[in-house]
Design a protein around this nucleic acid. Sequence first.
DNA 1: GAGTTTGAAACT
DNA 2: CAGTTTCAAACTC
Length: 800
Amino acid sequence: MDVVSPELNSLLPDEIMDTEAIVIEDLPSECPVATTQAEPEVPMEIEVPEIISMSAAVTPTQRTQALTTSTSTDSTLCSISSGTQLLLTTSSSAALKPSTSISVSTAAATKTASPGLQKLTAPFTISTNHQFILNKVAASSAIDVKSSGAQVLKHEGQKLVVTTLGKTGQPIVLALPHTGAKPSPAHGAGDSKAQPQQFKVVTIGGRTDLKPIMGVQPVSTASQLLGTSQHSTLQAQQLKTVQIAKKTQASTTGPMITKFIITKPLNSKGVSGQTSVSPVITGRVLTQSSPGTTPRTITLTETLSTTPQSISSSKIAISPLKSPSKLTVVSVASQSPSSPQKSVAVPLSMALGQQILAVQQSTPNSPAKVVSNHSTPQTMKSVQTMGAAQFKTIFPIPTPPNVQQIQVPGSRFHYVRLVTATTGSNTGQTGSPSTNSAMQTAKPMVVNTAAVRMSVPIVPAQAMKQVVPKTLTSPPQVVTTSQTQQRLIMPATPLPQIQPNLTNLPPGTVLAPAPGTGNMGYAVLPAQYVTQLQQSTFVTLASSSSFSTPTGVQTQARLPLNGLSTPDSASRQRKPCNCTKSQCLKLYCDCFANGEFCNNCNCTNCFNNLEHETERLKAIKACLDRNPEAFKPKIGKGKEGESDRRHSKGCNCKRSGCLKNYCECYEAKIMCSSICKCVGCKNFEESPERKTLMHLADAAEVRVQQQTAAKTKLSSQISDLLTRTTPAITSGGGKLPYTFVTKEVAEATCDCLIEQAKQAELANQPQAAAERMILEEFGRCLMRIINSAGKAKTDCSINC
DNA sequence: GAGTTTGAAACT
DNA sequence: CAGTTTCAAACTC
């Protein structure tokens, strides 16, 4: 998804990551845009997950910083005082699940910003006093943003406009214009399909008070955040992410008052309004104020769906970076629209240096919602060691009364998700649009199952190392998720309120601590250790102690459906499927039919995996609706007096005579029974054809075994002979093959020939064919002798 | 490896 | 429930 290249990252001073105390205040519902040229409205047509990370080092001279992101309504403002370094990274996925991340870093600068309007290209850098690094990795064709500023950064239809490059103390405005589509009134956040990127305006300037202009639902419970360092990123589909890292010069200034108003509309991309609801988190204000400086306001507003029972699933991804300390990515992704039950999480994660904080309030009375939290020990540790002055408060994201509860009653876990983490190599993709597929893969994996309990393998602690931030002084980065690494966010500490029932937990469901749970560590677990989640076993997700107990990677998870499972099929090596059209979500797919995830298959557009758990669950349900016993073993015990094993439904063969593997009975090596409706069946006890086939099959099997044994014996003899005859071999060559034809070799060869003759006889081969088989076998034996002799000669030549 | 055959699954 | 279509595996060349 969003990547900030190391090159760009290196441009940022280290101190920008330092943070200063931030006071969260309630946010006014309106944000003045008098000094900004942000467009009054933000298009809502498309669901665009966005990530905005802002890292700013504030000097006393800096007057204001304001970052306003408005996805749901009107505009987004990001105002940063002059003398700052701004890093903007936006990325959006393509059509289906576009996402955009914007990373804004501000660092104190003493020089004046270069005036004038410049056309911004992604990435671009204004390196004078104000450094602007814009990086957009987006592949969202659906985003149509019109530029309305003098400076325009356009990429993949998204434009970033810097309207003003002010001098020191002068406002600098970066605006991401948009189409101006209006949000859907139904959800507040707008219709998911018709919802484009929502906030595109970033204003950097000396404004003191920036208020978000957006129709945001009032936050009943405005959460307050206090801290010195903020480094939060919200990343997801339909997600607005704000990553903020601030550094205040040490001890020189009083506490800066910064207001953060984060408007994060979570749009369900769902087609149905029932299931797609945009959770709303509004009124989140972080305020930092320092004496003599104008207050900086950053407004982050999340708009969640208003639909009571269906809320678009949100995903929180904490992505690793090369410099994890620099980066914290929290993604909130919308759940797939088709998911009937939506798990809603409106996480707002704050990463402080190494710290990744995710907070969510979920309505307690929605049983369908599942939330779990996971945290790596490192992360949790860093949280624990945070100083009092440091930002250690998790954003409690107030959940609107109409928002459904995410957590599952009784579940210990609030949130579980797997996040595809981007490696550092991805950061170099500045300006390059991310493909849609990348977004798909970047989507966090969801530990989710149908009406089954699931197990979550715990990642070895060593796997977590890569997410540990190197340094706290590194500039923030937004990391794009990718398939290569997936992470499971787990709570490091038990979350008492959520049951481990993760039923119908949609992908991207945010599991966050419930209100009143207090700070909680979060573990980021690489998902490669959790390639598949065993779903048949109840698993403790939240126990922090469990982290020390690594569990093996489960590459093939079985889903016991209807309480049935086929242990033998699970143990045996399943053949890879080759499905192309069914998405492996129909019973055509053997993997799916066996309740297994596709693994190492050759299928295309496979949905039979955790990344498409919602679709998978839906497909399972559909199959069960059609046939409640669809996932039961077809070969069961027959009636009394019949064979112990018979096909549960019987076959319907018409042309194969039930003597080919087309027939499920024959394939299962059982005879057809009375329930079969086959025509011309020859798969019965007395059938001569069947006996012949069986005989041939057995003979072939025996043949293979005996040939293998004979070859082994021959090889052994040759090897033994080599050891005994090597001294006699001269380096000059000679008639070595003859030398190796000893008594033992001759006997072994005869054994092979005799066995071949037997096989020919068993197969009722004519004499000519039998002779040919024998001769061919003799030729093979002879070649082995020659090759062995030649090898021995060569070895001798080398060694001697 | 491409094309054909086959029958279960899905659909109407 | 029956007929038809779709699908992927099995099979043939």
